Deep mutational scan, measured.
Amino acid sequence: TSIVNVSSSLNVRSSASTSSKVIGSLSGNTKVTIVGEEGAFYKIEYKGSHGYVAKEYI
């Protein structure tokens, strides 16, 4: 489990790309479970499925 480190919110994306669809967002200090990594993104558990967040904010 890791913590989201942002002051406002962090986009959760459908794939490991800044141009991919935003499927949701997480607020600062939210706990997330990392299940993998791809480039500059972590794959996380998100709403019963998976999403991707930028590593620099975790």
Score class of each variant (00 low, 15 high):
residue 21 K to A: 12
residue 7 S to I: 13
residue 50 H to S: 06
residue 39 G to M: 04
residue 57 Y to C: 15
residue 40 A to K: 09
residue 30 T to V: 11
residue 36 G to Y: 03
residue 19 S to L: 11
residue 39 G to Q: 04
residue 58 I to F: 13
residue 37 E to L: 06
residue 8 S to V: 14
residue 44 I to S: 02
residue 21 K to N: 10
residue 28 G to M: 14
residue 49 S to H: 09
residue 53 V to E: 00
residue 8 S to T: 14
residue 56 E to T: 08
residue 7 S to D: 09
residue 29 N to W: 14
residue 5 N to P: 08
residue 2 S to R: 13
residue 43 K to P: 01
residue 24 G to M: 06
residue 51 G to Y: 04
residue 45 E to R: 08
residue 19 S to I: 08
residue 51 G to M: 02
residue 28 G to E: 10
residue 48 G to R: 04
residue 2 S to C: 15
residue 44 I to E: 00
residue 14 S to F: 12
residue 24 G to H: 03
residue 4 V to E: 06
residue 28 G to F: 13
residue 39 G to V: 02
residue 29 N to E: 08
residue 24 G to D: 03
residue 13 R to W: 15
residue 6 V to T: 12
residue 48 G to F: 05
residue 36 G to F: 03
residue 54 A to W: 11
residue 47 K to Q: 12
residue 13 R to H: 15
residue 31 K to T: 12
residue 41 F to K: 00
residue 50 H to G: 03
residue 38 E to P: 01
residue 53 V to P: 00
residue 43 K to E: 05
residue 16 A to Y: 03
residue 23 I to L: 09
residue 13 R to S: 04
residue 16 A to N: 04
residue 35 V to M: 07
residue 26 L to G: 01
residue 20 S to C: 05
residue 1 T to S: 11
residue 23 I to Q: 02
residue 47 K to N: 14
residue 5 N to Q: 10
residue 43 K to H: 04
residue 55 K to N: 02
residue 51 G to S: 02
residue 15 S to Y: 08
residue 11 N to P: 15
residue 15 S to T: 09
residue 46 Y to R: 00
residue 49 S to Q: 11
residue 27 S to W: 10
residue 43 K to W: 04
residue 16 A to Q: 02
residue 45 E to M: 12
residue 40 A to M: 11
residue 53 V to T: 01
residue 6 V to H: 10
residue 58 I to Y: 06
residue 16 A to K: 02
residue 12 V to S: 01
residue 14 S to V: 11
residue 15 S to R: 11
residue 5 N to Y: 07
residue 19 S to C: 14
residue 20 S to D: 03
residue 20 S to Y: 06
residue 55 K to I: 06
residue 30 T to L: 07
residue 20 S to I: 01
residue 12 V to K: 00
residue 9 S to M: 12
residue 32 V to E: 00
residue 13 R to K: 06
residue 35 V to Q: 04
residue 13 R to T: 08
residue 24 G to W: 06
residue 17 S to V: 05
residue 41 F to G: 00
residue 37 E to Y: 06
residue 16 A to G: 05
residue 44 I to P: 00
residue 8 S to P: 08
residue 47 K to Y: 08
residue 5 N to E: 09
residue 15 S to M: 10
residue 23 I to T: 03
residue 39 G to L: 05
residue 12 V to L: 03
residue 38 E to A: 07
residue 45 E to V: 12
residue 39 G to D: 06
residue 18 T to F: 15
residue 50 H to W: 15
residue 36 G to V: 03
residue 4 V to H: 08
residue 10 L to T: 12
residue 41 F to P: 00
residue 47 K to I: 05
residue 53 V to W: 01
residue 22 V to H: 04
residue 5 N to L: 12
residue 49 S to E: 08
residue 3 I to T: 10
residue 45 E to W: 10
residue 49 S to A: 12
residue 48 G to M: 05
residue 52 Y to K: 00
residue 3 I to S: 08
residue 51 G to N: 01
residue 24 G to K: 02
residue 21 K to Y: 08
residue 55 K to M: 07
residue 54 A to P: 15
residue 54 A to M: 13
residue 3 I to E: 07
residue 13 R to G: 03
residue 46 Y to D: 00
residue 37 E to V: 09
residue 30 T to R: 06
residue 35 V to E: 03
residue 15 S to Q: 12
residue 49 S to P: 01
residue 22 V to D: 02
residue 51 G to D: 00
residue 10 L to V: 15
residue 4 V to M: 09
residue 3 I to K: 08
residue 53 V to R: 00
residue 5 N to K: 11
residue 31 K to M: 13
residue 31 K to E: 10
residue 20 S to T: 03
residue 9 S to R: 14
residue 48 G to E: 07
residue 12 V to G: 01
residue 29 N to Y: 14
residue 21 K to V: 10
residue 32 V to R: 01
residue 53 V to Y: 02
residue 44 I to R: 00
residue 45 E to F: 10
residue 18 T to E: 13
residue 57 Y to I: 06
residue 10 L to Q: 05
residue 22 V to S: 06
residue 33 T to W: 10
residue 21 K to S: 12
residue 18 T to C: 15
residue 31 K to V: 14
residue 17 S to H: 09
residue 35 V to P: 00
residue 15 S to I: 05
residue 14 S to P: 03
residue 49 S to I: 12
residue 17 S to G: 06
residue 18 T to R: 12
residue 53 V to C: 03
residue 10 L to N: 05
residue 57 Y to N: 09
residue 47 K to F: 10
residue 25 S to A: 10
residue 28 G to Y: 13
residue 33 T to N: 09
residue 26 L to Q: 02
residue 53 V to Q: 00
residue 51 G to F: 04
residue 41 F to D: 02
residue 28 G to S: 13
residue 27 S to Y: 10
residue 9 S to L: 11
residue 3 I to D: 06
residue 23 I to Y: 02
residue 12 V to N: 00
residue 47 K to H: 09
residue 18 T to Y: 15
residue 22 V to C: 08
residue 51 G to T: 01
residue 53 V to I: 13
residue 4 V to Y: 05
residue 26 L to I: 14
residue 39 G to Y: 04
residue 24 G to R: 02
residue 28 G to A: 15
residue 21 K to I: 10
residue 1 T to F: 06
residue 6 V to K: 10
residue 7 S to F: 08
residue 22 V to Q: 04
residue 12 V to M: 03
residue 38 E to N: 06
residue 24 G to N: 02
residue 19 S to K: 11
residue 50 H to M: 08
residue 18 T to A: 13
residue 52 Y to C: 02
residue 44 I to M: 02
residue 2 S to Y: 10
residue 58 I to L: 11
residue 43 K to T: 03
residue 49 S to M: 12
residue 38 E to L: 06
residue 46 Y to N: 01
residue 52 Y to W: 11
residue 38 E to W: 07
residue 16 A to D: 02
residue 56 E to W: 09
residue 1 T to K: 09
residue 39 G to I: 02
residue 49 S to L: 10
residue 5 N to S: 12
residue 40 A to R: 08
residue 53 V to F: 03
residue 1 T to V: 14
residue 23 I to N: 01
residue 56 E to Y: 09
residue 34 I to V: 09
residue 1 T to Q: 12
residue 42 Y to A: 03
residue 14 S to Y: 10
residue 13 R to M: 15
residue 25 S to R: 15
residue 57 Y to W: 09
residue 11 N to M: 14
residue 36 G to S: 07
residue 48 G to A: 06
residue 34 I to A: 01
residue 34 I to Q: 01
residue 54 A to L: 15
residue 18 T to M: 15
residue 46 Y to F: 13
residue 14 S to D: 10
residue 8 S to N: 11
residue 53 V to D: 00
residue 19 S to Y: 09
residue 22 V to L: 07
residue 52 Y to R: 00
residue 44 I to A: 00
residue 38 E to Y: 08
residue 17 S to Y: 07
residue 21 K to R: 13
residue 3 I to A: 09
residue 36 G to N: 04
residue 36 G to E: 05
residue 49 S to T: 11
residue 16 A to E: 02
residue 58 I to H: 03
residue 51 G to A: 08
residue 51 G to H: 01
residue 8 S to Y: 11
residue 5 N to V: 14
residue 13 R to F: 15
residue 58 I to N: 04
residue 14 S to N: 08
